[in-house]
Amino acid sequence: MSSTQTLTFARAITEGLRASLESDDKVMLMGEDIGRLGGVFRVTDGLQKDFGEARVVDTPLAESGILGTAIGLALRGYRPVCEIQFDGFVFPAYDQITTQLAKMRYRSRGRVEVPVVIRIPYGGGIGAVEHHSESPEALFAHTAGLRVVSPATPQDAYDMMRAAIASPDPVLFFEPKGRYWSKADVALGGPVPDGVLDSARVARTGDDVTLVAYGPTVATALKAADALAAEGTSAEVVDLRAISPIDVTAVAESVCRTGRCVVVHEAPSFLGVGAEIAARVSDECFYALEAPVQRVAGFHAPYPVAKLEHEYLPSVDRVLDAVDRALAY
C-alpha cells in the first residue's frame, strides 16, 4: 500500500527500517539504546515493541563487538542494521569494518556475503560536545568493498535505507543528524527506486555554476542557490547521495555545461571528497572549465568547540564567496 505522509527526516528512516523489518524476517537491528529508548535520536522508536528483542537488539556498549557479531550474523544469513550512536564513536569498529566487513566477499571469491548496514548519525551544527559532530565518510569511502551513502531528503532517507538493507554489499549509511527534524512529504510503500545507492540527483537545475553537495550541505547549497538567483546567477545543485561510488557521470554532465564547480561538505577539504571531485572534473571537463574547482569544507583542525562550529562549518556565505571566486576567473 502506498501513501504520502509528512515526516521528519528521522521518522522517514524509521519507516524505512520498519518496511524492511516487515518484508524480510532476516533483517534485524543492533545497537546501543535502540530498544526501549528508541535510540538517542529516537530513530528506532517503537520498533523493539513491534518486532521483539531478538530482532531489535540492545547490545553491550562495544562498537567493535556490534560490528564483529553483525558480520557473524550476516555469515549465517541475517541482514543486520547496526546503529553507531554518534560519528565519533565508530572508530572502535573501524578495524572490523575495514579489515573484515569490506573484504569478506573478496577474500572468499564471492562464496560468502555480508550484507551489513551501518547507520551513523554524522555532521555538526547541533551544539554538541566533542566526538558528536564529525564527518568521517571519506575514511570509509577510501576502502574498497564498502558502499558509502548519505541522503539529504526524507524521501531519499526512506528509499535509500530500504535499498541499503536490500543490497548484498556492506553499506555505510551516513545520516545528517542536523537534518533529523526537517520535514517533507514522503511517498511510503511501493518498490525501492533503482539506483538510489549509486546515482546523484539534480536537486536544482541551473546554468552558470554547479554546486556539488551531499547529506547536510545540500540544504546549504540550495539556500546559496536561492541567494545567487536573486543576484542573477543560475546555480545547479547536484546532490551526490553516494560517495562510494561517486556518480562522476552526473557531476561531469553538469560541470561541462556550467563550466564552474564548487564542492561543499562538512568534512575537512584535505584529501576529502572534494579533492576527488576536483580531480575527476579536471579529467572529464578540462576544456569546458572556466575556473578551478572550488572547495568549501571543514578545516584541517579537529572539529571545534560548539561555540565555534558555525565558523567551521560551510555556511551560505562561504559558498557564495567560493562562487564569486569561480565567477571572477
Binding site: G72, L75, T99, R111
Partner: peptide, 30 residues
C-alpha cells in the same frame, strides 16, 4: 568454500574472528 565444510576462512587480524563466531552463534540461536 566456507560452507562446504562449515569452516570459515583463516583470519590474520588477531582475534577478529572471535566476534564473527559469536555473531554466527547468535544466528544459530535465532
Amino acid at each position: 568454500d566456507p560452507n562446504e565444510h562449515n569452516v570459515h576462512l583463516y583470519t590474520l587480524v588477531i582475534g577478529s574472528h572471535a566476534l564473527h563466531a559469536t555473531g554466527y552463534a547468535m544466528g544459530i540461536q535465532r
